[in-house]
Computed example of a mutant assay.
Amino acid sequence: MTTTITLRFTVRGGTAADLATVNEVPLARELIVETDTGKQKLGNGITAYNSLPYMHAGVTSVDASGGSTGLTFSGGPITGSGTLTLGGTLAIANGGTGATTADGAQSALGLGSAATVNTGTSGAAVPLLDGTNAWTNQQRFASGIILGTATQILTGTGTPESAVSAPKGSLYLRTDGGAGTTLYVKESGSGNTGWAAK
């Protein structure tokens, strides 16, 4: 005949503070539960309670560090509930700019003023080289203008004949010229001859 006996048992326990105060040596394989934290320790018959490790204690504290990245964390360590707050600036070596403002980032990265200006075809914008741009102010070209693939508009002093090379169809504006010697048109050749005063 089979007899079934139903048993209920409890394990030894107490609050964390009480168990720490007593600090006795639990028996080997004696299980002790902290009733206020839910944490457990298993005795080995040798080690006092306070020196025993918790069983499967899991994470009891969370903290963070920015290391050498330039970032900082505040609010830790968190042992219950709380918030870690990220601060600081991410260094350039770690993919950041090392700055907290657009101007500071521009300076830290060595970017020119055009880095924070929009592109466009008019107004205070960086001109698009493949667009039709509207210039509202004078533009100065130090060495002339090339039209199309070769034809040029040039300027200088003295006659361009035998002095200035340009393709046929180019114009030369002589700044020290007079009547009939201010505008020259390249009518022939591709070297420095073939200029005709107009």
Rank of each mutant, 00 (worst) to 15 (best):
T47R: 01
Y49M: 09
N50D: 07
L52V: 10
Y54K: 05
M55A: 07
H56M: 07
V59Y: 01
V59P: 00
S61K: 12
S61A: 11
V62M: 04
A64H: 01
A64F: 01
G66K: 00
G67K: 11
G67H: 15
S68Q: 09
S68R: 10
S68Y: 04
S68W: 04
T69W: 00
L71Y: 00
S74Y: 07
G75Y: 00
T79P: 04
G80F: 09
G80C: 12
S81C: 06
S81A: 05
T83H: 03
T85V: 14
T89P: 00
L90E: 03
I92S: 10
A93I: 08
G95P: 03
A99C: 05
T101C: 05
T101S: 13
A102M: 14
D103H: 02
Q106N: 14
S107N: 11
L109Q: 01
L109G: 01
G110N: 05
G110L: 08
G112R: 11
A115Q: 13
G120R: 08
T121G: 06
S122W: 11
S122E: 06
G123M: 00
P127Q: 01
P127G: 02
L129C: 02
L129M: 13
D130E: 12
W135P: 11
T136K: 13
Q139E: 12
F141K: 09
F141V: 08
F141Y: 15
S143N: 09
G144D: 13
I145Q: 06
I146C: 15
L147K: 10
G148L: 03
T149P: 10
Q152K: 13
L154G: 00
L154C: 00
T155S: 15
